[in-house]
């Protein structure tokens, strides 16, 4: 989160990367474990640097390297000046390499089929399903009793520590068969249709979380005290549904929780059974923090979470959900 704000949000970093590098972002949790060509290539690059993943530990950081796998630079600091220096030095070193290491077409990278990837760690967007962007933001209550964003991005430029006031990003995946089943139920019930348990529990456990300061703890099944989300046809608007519901998630000890309401709009094309709009908002009071999300405001404070359809053509919208590291557990959240 802090890198987005302090490093990659800067125009000089963006220009240098766009003009001179091929940029790629990846989740180290997968790549340090993958026992396939991708994982082996990544580790061969990373292990030329200071982070060698001893004992299976993280290799996270920023790396510059060649297509053949020669490490040019490494940095794990969010000081933009240090990143810029590393990029410039790496680029200078790249230009000094023999032509066979750097000229267009000189290095041959073989094709790699998805079937060659280690199945346990290969995550593919559900074919024909929904890719939904999920963004959370901590909010303040103002004097008039309304809501406002907290502070501004960039408020901590001196410490380079983010304050958790920005919008977070995650992704919700819904399979095509789940969508079809849900829409069939909608057609047959005019008074309203509850979301299928698998989708409802997936949203509750993996997406109604405070991830504004990092990787959050997800909810256990027994921590769902209440979750109701119904879809009701909107009179006079074919294919339009109103979503509304309530939720209450809380640990047994009560030290972390989130409770509030949901409201949304869904639109589908009757002939194709294609959902063209999925806008859902959860708003409620959140309290507590997780191991990797310290620094929560004391007490209960408003947290808003917005869901909206992603664009499958954009790489950033095809990023797997944080909660899908155990794929079966994610898709069958109501069972496991």
């Amino acid at each position: 989160m802090a890198d987005r704000e302090f490093v990659f949000g800067r125009a000089d970093v963006q220009k240098l990367l766009r003009d001179h590098f091929v940029t790629v972002a990846a989740d180290d949790w997968y790549q340090r474990r993958q026992n396939d060509a991708v994982g082996k290539f990544f580790r061969a690059v990373a292990d030329q640097g200071p982070r060698k993943g001893a004992g299976g530990s993280t290799r996270q950081g920023r790396y510059a390297f060649t297509a053949s796998g020669k490490l040019l630079g490494f940095n794990n600091n969010r000081d933009p000046q240090r990143i810029l220096r590393m990029l410039r030095e790496s680029l200078a070193d790249f230009k000094q390499l023999p032509a066979g290491e750097r000229m267009p077409g000189a290095v041959k990278v073989p094709p790699l089929q998805r079937s060659e990837l280690e199945r346990r760690f290969a995550r593919t967007p559900p074919d024909g399903g929904l890719l939904v962007r999920v963004h959370s933001r901590v909010l303040d209550k103002d004097k008039e009793g309304g809501y406002a964003a907290c502070g501004k991005a960039g408020a901590n430029q001196d410490s380079l520590r983010h304050n958790g006031f920005g919008a977070s990003s995650d992704h919700l995946w819904i399979r095509a068969a789940e969508v079809q089943s849900f829409l069939e139920n909608v057609r047959n019930r005019r008074e309203g249709t509850a979301l299928p348990p698998a989708i409802a529990t997936r949203i509750a456990r993996y997406h109604l979380v405070d991830n504004t300061r990092g990787e959050p703890p997800h909810w256990g099944r027994d921590e769902i005290r209440e979750f109701k989300l119904n879809a009701v046809p909107i009179t006079g608007r074919p294919g339009a549904l109103r979503l509304s519901g309530t939720f209450h998630l809380e640990t047994e000890k009560g030290d972390r929780g989130y409770a509030g309401v949901m409201e949304g709009r869904l639109q589908y094309e009757a002939k194709s059974n294609k959902i063209t709009r999925f806008d859902l908002l959860a708003i409620g009071d959140h309290w507590g923090e997780g191991r990797y999300t310290p620094g929560a405001r004391p007490g209960k404070h408003p947290l808003g979470i917005a869901f909206t359809l992603g664009d499958p053509g954009k790489p950033q919208d095809r990023v797997p959900p944080q909660g899908i590291r155990w794929e079966q557990g994610y898709y069958e959240a109501e069972k496991h």
């Binding site: 590098f21 996270q60 060649t66």
Partner: peptide, 15 residues
């Protein structure tokens, strides 16, 4: 050259 942004949690997602 390649620039890789590698994090625990996807840098373009939840990290």
């Amino acid at each position: 050259p390649i620039f890789l942004w590698e994090m625990d949690g996807h840098p373009l997602g939840c990290t």
